[in-house]
Design a protein around this nucleic acid. Sequence first.
RNA 1: GGGCGGUUAGCUCAGCUGGCUAGAGCGUCUCGUUUACACCGAGAAGGCCGUAGGUUCGAGUCCUACACCGCCCACCA
Length: 720
Amino acid sequence: MQDLPKAYDPSVAEEQMNAKWKKADVFNPDNQKEGKPFCMVFPPANVTGILHLGHALSVSIEDILARYKRMQGFKTLFLPGTDHAAIATQAKVEAELYKKDKKTHRDFSREEFLEMVKDYAKNSQSTILDQLNKLGASVDWSRLAYTMDKKRTLAVKTAFKRLYEKGLIYQGKRLVNWDPKLQTNVSDDEIKWEEETTKFYYFKYGPFTIGTTRPETKFGDKYVVMHPDDDRYSKYEHGQKIELEWINSQIEATIIKDDSIDMELGTGVMTITPAHDTTDYDIAQKHDLDIEPIIDLQGHMLPIAGEFEGQYIAKARKGVVEKLEQKGLLEKIDEKYVHRIATNSRGGGIIEPQIRKQWFMAVDKPFTLEHSEIDGIKSGSETTLKQLMRHVVESGQINIIPNHFDKTYFHWIDNLRDWNISRQIVFGHQIPVWYKNDKVYCDTKAPSGDDWKQDPDTLDTWFSSGLWSFSTLGWPEETNDLKTFHPNSILETGYDILFFWVARMVLMSGSLLGQVPFNTVYLHGLIRDSERQKMSKSKGNAIDPLDIMQKYGTDALRFSLVYANAGGTDTAFMEDRVKGMKHFANKLWNIFRFISSNLSLDIEKLDSPPSANTDADKQILDSLELIIKDSTKHIEAYRFNEAAQAIYQFVWHELADKYIEASKEQLQDDANSENTQRILVLCLETSLKLLHPFMPFITEYIWGLLGHKTILATEEWPKS
RNA sequence: GGGCGGUUAGCUCAGCUGGCUAGAGCGUCUCGUUUACACCGAGAAGGCCGUAGGUUCGAGUCCUACACCGCCCACCA
């Protein structure tokens, strides 16, 4: 023990302790005989790259919970996994292909391209799992799951089939968010609106002036719409036809009166392009108007554009404006018009709405929930997905922390439209539906007989992650895990995927199992850079947690992330704070060095509690009592930052600064030496236990060096 | 346009159910090479807790307005 270095070296401890845990297999709940179950699934990391600091925070919080519960005697399952992240991963591979050889997926067969994406995913997956391990996540590797492995694939197909049979999944032809660049549509939630300054054109359209940012879509505009209460246009009647000169010829336009028109905006009159705009589409639906496509899926003009047929959007726009100007129909151009355009947030292009036949999940359609364990929805009663999602949070069966996210959640549900679940990309779960002539067949396996063709589309990646709370436990098989660990105890994740993921898990679990997926949702905030900017690789401000871990130690990183972060709020990442926590680890190390060098007792034989012989004794024992109580209370209330701060305060300023100083004298006093040693050991060991969930490596390491044969991770949580 | 969050020391942030003489880390200053630790110790400077009202014996903490910053949602042609 005399060879211990003055400064704590995290790298040694981290490697050794990970090996120790692995060898003892302590994180597999099957090795734990008793205890109430506690289950938490790791939010499956996208196999699009490596883990970032946000993951580090996520893992830290989750692991605190897992280790704490384990020490409390819960049969604890922390289940690791990764997500194939369909569109994001494919977009990544496509981007690399293009950068390398100027090739796209269309230069390969579906099989060839799929292989490339799978390779990429596999590669990235092993990096991520290695990182997860290095972060000290006390997960059970024997239950590792991947959204595209065999079991999860069966779960996806089964879920699809059952929801299809319930009529909750259906095929419909309607306007969807089409991305011409990635050649797929995406859900409403995947759209990112970006501000853009563009030209706003005013054209003469018969007796009216219409404004538009999209002249190239105006070929099909044979309806002109205005508000029924607009006095300026009161002489026109709904349904009235007028003749007017337009782009390629004279056309007949029909007047439509609709109260969705904003009278204040522009001239209060607009023409509509129902096939490529959601507002226009809704108006057309309402009045049963013709819907004619103008642009094809690649972004070319269709024959309706006449001489502009085949041109790309940008070129056609210019041409149309010129032509209208020649015809004297261009009134004016507002050069600096600011509006927002829809883009595909998954690395795609500008969204061009298109009418397509797609698969949807019906959120408002009543269905019968045969089996329900949800309070307030009886087995066999009728409900809708929306009602279900709302009810479980409203009734408190799912508790969202911090609480104010309830409102955000409800608001999202209220605005929710049917979920478009089919994608035209190749990487993902192919839709388990087969066609033969006009017959449609849905099952987990292909139908027998020839000539059946499977639907080429794949599922939205959130379809498979929506099943995560139970697909990871073996569903659709009725496994023991499923019985023991579902609903999960808690879901910990970033607030940015409340809609994408949390809500979808509620939807899936509710409709397929009649259960909530988890009882508690803990949402953490985002880690930003020191300028409070969102970290991203493209901005070049992303920090690799591994670099930080190497520099300061994993424990220091974990502790610093948790120390300063209150639930649900964003934090700027400050490297200096990690440095401070490295100092704390070192402090702990030296407390241990001091105590062990003054120890003449056998550590395994210190069973009876020490007595308070001096004022210092009394004070530290009181503080010890208090810190156990406080830190436990804070963790129970999900105030991990408070717990961390309290323990930090105790270890450094009570134990080290005060008691150790006092002990130096007491240790010299023969009558008191032994009792002082006992107090020192008790304080140190208790501190190690309280700190273990936060700083697993150093605490486990010291625990071993003290001479314990047991594993700290499975020691009992201190009681006050 | 609707909703949510933030505004506390030079910087980044805590502050749970109202009792704070308002805390932490980093930074700054003074002193100290005491045999656990200089990745240290002792101490100090630094805050009308965004603004204005209100409730209360008492408000950083509750209420009401307002201002600024950020985020989410929404079909501004």
